[in-house]
């Protein structure tokens, strides 16, 4: 997935996340949740998952509670608390929303790992060149500023204005000095960079952009395959082969062959990155052991 053309990765995540947010079908949500969980573990490891859960669980709980409390659209009243009718439909809807949130956050954690900033800039560099340039410059400036601020504090320490020693007032004052030097340097350095760009012909006619990614035959095959699966899923939803409606009464499609087929297509689509990466890893191990 990492080596795939950025347009395919971007389109893939956009589609899967969109389907997950819009279509709160229990089976499809389950598929999306499990696949995103597996892929997130594969990409980020178990440890980072714990950190994600830290803010995900309160969000899910809030969604599961707030829906039955404030949404009274359902027809099946479970019980009444303090004049609030808790309906079965809104309870289930709340649970589905909680699952949706989990899946979306997990998909985004995979997206963050795959769609790095360079890929995004490549993808949109031609449509919005100035904005893309700002993005890539700002991303470069951040580590540069961190390095520069270290240099400045060392220099300040050498002349006896250490941020880490003295009275609190002195420390704050020398901290503010470091910041002030930093900002002045950043602005002047920025203008120098701009002049350097200008003298090298930035913005003149006939300048082209280097593109790192050329779509190859593998990209095209995989794009066609995932597009086919995406069209199947869309068709399944449009033709109401798979359907879910929560209000006023829960309406769910029966388990027919065609519904099963759509589930399978969605499952394949959601597992697609994992299968791809797993296959490549296997291939790598296999070819390595033969050397």
């Amino acid at each position: 997935m990492r080596n795939l053309h950025p347009a395919i990765s971007f389109g893939y995540f956009a589609f899967v996340i969109l389907i997950t947010v819009v279509f709160l079908h229990p089976v499809m949500l389950g598929i999306s949740l499990v696949s995103s969980l597996l892929y997130a573990i594969y990409l980020n490891g178990i440890k980072s998952l714990r950190f994600t859960l830290l803010f995900l669980v309160p969000m899910m709980l809030l969604a599961a509670i707030i829906n039955p409390l404030f949404n009274h659209l359902g027809n099946t009243v479970l019980f009444t608390v303090a004049n609030i009718q808790i309906t079965l439909e809104s309870t289930l809807y709340g649970l589905a929303t909680a699952a949706m949130l989990a899946a979306v956050i997990l998909w985004f954690s995979c997206y963050n790992k795959i769609m790095t900033s360079d890929k995004f800039i490549y993808l949109f560099g031609r449509i919005i060149p100035a904005i893309s340039l700002i993005i890539s410059m700002a991303l470069r400036f951040i580590p540069r500023y961190i390095a520069q601020i270290k240099k400045i504090s060392y220099a300040q320490r050498a002349i006896g204005r250490d941020v880490g020693s003295g009275r609190i007032i002195d420390r704050l004052r020398s901290g503010a000095d470091v910041l002030s030097i930093m900002v002045t340097w950043a602005l002047e350095n920025g203008v120098d960079t701009a002049d350097s760009m200008r003298s090298r012909g930035y913005g003149l006619k006939g300048r082209s952009a280097y593109s790192l990614y050329q779509p190859n035959s593998r990209d095209k095959t995989l794009a066609a395959f995932s597009l086919y699966l995406a069209v199947l899923v869309i068709a399944g939803i449009a033709l109401r082969l798979v359907l879910i409606s929560y209000f006023p009464l829960i309406e769910l499609n029966h388990l027919s062959v065609s519904a099963l087929f759509i589930y399978l297509a969605f499952l394949l689509l959601c597992l697609f990155p994992l299968l791809l990466d797993g296959f490549e890893e296997l291939k790598w191990r296999f070819s390595r052991s033969r050397i």
Binding site: I128, M137, A138, A186, G190
Partner: peptide, 20 residues
């Protein structure tokens, strides 16, 4: 913003503010 083809200096100043 894109349509008026901003100058390099303008872009860099914006990038500096963003980075800060």
């Amino acid at each position: 913003f894109e349509g008026r083809r901003p100058q390099a200096r303008e872009l860099v100043l914006i990038a500096v503010m963003i980075a800060l």
